[in-house]
Amino acid sequence: MSNSYIFRYAAILVVLVAVILSSAAMILKPLQDKNIAIAKMRGILEACNLHPTADDAVQMYEQFISREVVINPQGEEISIYDVKSKEFVLGTTRAFEVDLKTQLKHKSAGEDYILPLYDFVSQNDTLLVIPVHGRGLWGPIYGNIALKTDRNTIGGARFFHDKETPGLGAEIDQYWFSDQFKGKQIFDGSGKFVSVRPIKGGAGKLPESQRIHGVDAVSGGTITSNGLGTTIDHVLGSYVVYLTK
């Protein structure tokens, strides 16, 4: 077989494969995006102590999330989207479409950034949901923290970590862990921001007055626990201007 045949063969194969793959990617993209959106909605609702399934997540989201708000570094609301009427009250950016990871990167690079948050209203609860994003040792940690109307006490939280040592390792996506956050406070008595962090060996190790700012860390996942602590500190810290307004 001649070289030119090999080249022609390879070229045709590459073009064919490229066409098939890109059309498949294009056709399936809307479905994939929808799945990602549903996962994000579930994360937000789970932080508000609801348990939506993949099927009713969208409906529950529209029922309970009243507003999506985008704020700037000065803590000013620059965009408000009313979920029920599907209309913008202010600005043109939906918080749901803001990628927190990218914005945090902008922040650490010293560039301009925006931050998303969500208003949750149900019969029993009115919560302000703040998304968080950061790193464990292996892979990203993400989740949501819901604050009560005093903008200090945590009403619910939920975290995810895609990759961990199977079985053991940090189980920060377990409910026993995230449920500990309920009732903890992110500001101290004098109104100073102190965040909430996982404490190795248990929150009981802290002095009495500090216990309201700590939860039990997961065993065997020191780095992930520390990573989560830093993440919460870092991300909530960015919202402090807004929260104290």
């Binding site: 790193r135 292996w138 892979g139 990203p140 895609d162 990759k163």
Partner: peptide, 9 residues
């Protein structure tokens, strides 16, 4: 693939 999944910095 793990390198991609774990988003090394």
């Amino acid at each position: 693939l793990f390198m991609q999944e774990w988003e090394f910095e």
